[in-house]
Amino acid sequence: MEGNIAEMGQFIGAGLAAIGSGAAAIGVGHVAGNFLAGALRNPSAAAAQTATLFIGIAFAEALGIFSFLVALLLMFAV
């Protein structure tokens, strides 16, 4: 197991950055779960809010994608 310490740092950093994906997953689940809870309370209003749901999911997911990007950059680009 030889290698240089910078490479090790890269991989560790990439792994740490990947945690962000999980955090984004929590966020997306939160958005979808709350939407479902609200939609079950008031199903008639749910259809009008699906666009908002997707926008919310997209915003939550974008940040996870950022962390994924950081991981990729550390793995391949640095």
Partner: peptide
């Protein structure tokens, strides 16, 4: 975010 969301999602899935 607008661009990275699209590229990141597609890239991530394919990767």
């Amino acid at each position: 975010s607008h661009s990275i969301r699209l590229a990141g999602n597609v890239m991530a899935g394919h990767a």
